[in-house]
């Protein structure tokens, strides 16, 4: 599926005949972050609302039970949309530049879980996320320094 044919507003060319917004890497990247984070929040909301499956019932029925939750399906769909936007971003900008930026997803997911689901986030978890962000920046530092 070509990203241009997707029925989202930001994918459409504007009236001045300029390139659609999604054809700018930062728009595609930001959209991917928003969709990935929102998708996961919706998935988690669906999982929280779903009844607990009996422990002895087996893994496959448990998975199918969760996949029948509308919020889980909706969340997975939004997540998929985020993946499409990510592919669009990668097509426009070097992956070594974009990869460290995706660590903002971890920060956003932890922050929104705290706010929306009132999860108790111990300091150790916050430090862990900070260390991961540093690691992701380091991971792509050398290739990112190279001139494009």
């Amino acid at each position: 599926m070509a990203t241009e044919s997707h029925p989202a507003l930001l994918l459409a060319p504007n009236t001045a005949g300029q390139v659609p917004l999604i054809r700018q890497w930062w728009v595609a990247f930001s959209a991917s972050t928003v969709f990935v984070v929102c998708g996961h929040l919706l998935i988690k909301a669906g999982l929280n609302a779903a009844s607990e499956h009996p422990a002895g019932a087996g893994l496959v029925p448990a998975i199918l039970h969760l996949l029948l939750q509308p919020a889980v399906v909706g969340g997975l769909s939004i997540y998929l949309l985020g993946t499409v936007c990510w592919i669009s971003a990668v097509a426009q900008k070097e992956i070594s530049f974009l990869y460290p930026l995706t660590s903002i997803n971890y920060v956003m997911v932890v922050a929104t879980s705290l706010l929306l689901f009132h999860e108790v986030v111990p300091p150790r978890r916050i430090i862990g996320v900070a260390v991961i962000v540093i690691g992701m920046i380091l991971m792509n530092r050398n290739s990112a320094k190279r001139p494009a």
Partner: peptide, 25 residues
């Protein structure tokens, strides 16, 4: 992987499970 993720995530905090994805790198 998606199926196991859903079943596991139902019983865990999102702020706990999601950053563990980075172990994939």
């Amino acid at each position: 992987a998606t199926g196991l993720w859903l079943v596991g995530l139902q019983k865990l905090d999102l702020s706990y499970a999601y950053p563990l994805v980075s172990f994939g790198y």
